[in-house]
Simulated assay, not measured.
Amino acid sequence: MKVDRQEQDEARRTRIARAAFELFARTGLDSVSAQDIARAAFVSRTNLYRYFPSKTHMLLAHFERTVGETRAEALRRLSSGAAPQAVWQLVTARMADLGVRYQHLVGAVGQAVLGRSRPGEGAAGGPLAQEWQTAQTLVSLVEPVLSAMRQQGKLRPDADTRFLAALLVDACLMSLLHGGHRNQREVLLDWQDRFLLLMQGALQPKPGTGALPPLDPQGDDPPGNSHESEK
C-alpha cells in the first residue's frame, strides 16, 4: 500500500538522520564519510543519497526533529496556562544547551539556515527546500511565545510575531556563530540582550503614559540559574 511505503520511507529517513548525527556528534561533520553513515544506518550509499543530498541535510533533518519536540512541549505548556516568559525560558535553555554541547556542529546548521534562499529558488525538495524548512521550524518554535505575549497585551496588537520570530532566530544563530560563548549561561545572557533589543519596538506602551514597560523574558529568575533542570 502507498501509505505503508510512505511510512517505510519516513522511518528510513529518520534512521539515516539519527545515525548520521550520532557520528557527527562524536567526530564532527568533516570526519564522517558517506560510507560510514550508510553502514551505521544499514542502507546502501545509493539509498543514502536518495533521501539526503548531503551530510549537512542529514544534520538539519535530525536538528528539526529535536526542535519539533521542544516546540510540542512549549505549546503544551502555553495551552495549560504557563506564562510566556516561563516558556521562553524553557525554549532558550534547551536551544542554548544544544548550542554548547554540539558547538562543533553549530557552524554547519547556522550557515545553512542563515544562508537560506526563498522558496522556489532551488529544485523542489532539494537542498534549498531543506534549509528553508529548517528555518521555518525554528521560527515556529519562537512564534507561539510571542503570540502569547501579544494576547496578554505585552506587545502591540499589530506586532508581526512571525517577522519578529524570524529576526530572533537569525540573531540567536549569529550569536552562536560569532559569540565565543564558553557555557550555557553566557549564551542565555547574550540571547536575553538580543531579545530585549529586538522587542523594544513591538512593546505595548503603558496606558495613559506612552512609556514602554520593562521587558524581562526570564521573569524573576536570574538568567542561567534555573535552566539546568531543563537539560
Score class of each variant (00 low, 15 high):
Pro157Lys: 01
Met149Arg: 09
Ser33Arg: 08
Ala82Asp: 08
Ala19Pro: 07
Thr46Arg: 12
Gln8Met: 14
Ala86Leu: 14
Ala86Met: 13
Leu60Phe: 14
Leu75Asn: 07
Gln200Glu: 12
Val87Gly: 09
Ser44Ala: 02
Asn225Leu: 05
Val87Gln: 12
Asp160Lys: 06
Trp132Asp: 05
Arg162His: 11
Ala41Cys: 12
Met149Thr: 06
Met95Ser: 07
Ala148Met: 09
Gly99Gln: 07
Pro84His: 00
Ala20Asp: 03
Arg116Gly: 13
Ser117Gly: 14
Asp160Phe: 13
Ala166Tyr: 03
Ser147His: 09
Thr56Gln: 02
Arg5Ala: 15
Arg15Glu: 10
Arg162Phe: 00
Leu176Val: 08
Asp170Cys: 03
Val142Phe: 01
Gly28Ala: 03
Ser31Asp: 12
Met149Glu: 10
Ser31Glu: 15
Arg150Pro: 13
Leu60Trp: 13
Glu143Asn: 02
Asp221Ala: 15
Gln103Glu: 03
Ala211Asn: 00
Ala148Gly: 02
Glu69Asn: 08
Tyr51Pro: 05
Asp4Trp: 11
Val169Asp: 05
Arg150Cys: 07
Val187Ala: 10
Thr56Pro: 03
Leu198Asp: 04
Phe21Leu: 06
Gln35Ile: 15
Leu59Ala: 14
Thr134Leu: 00
Met199His: 08
Trp88Lys: 07
Trp88Asn: 05
Leu78Asn: 05
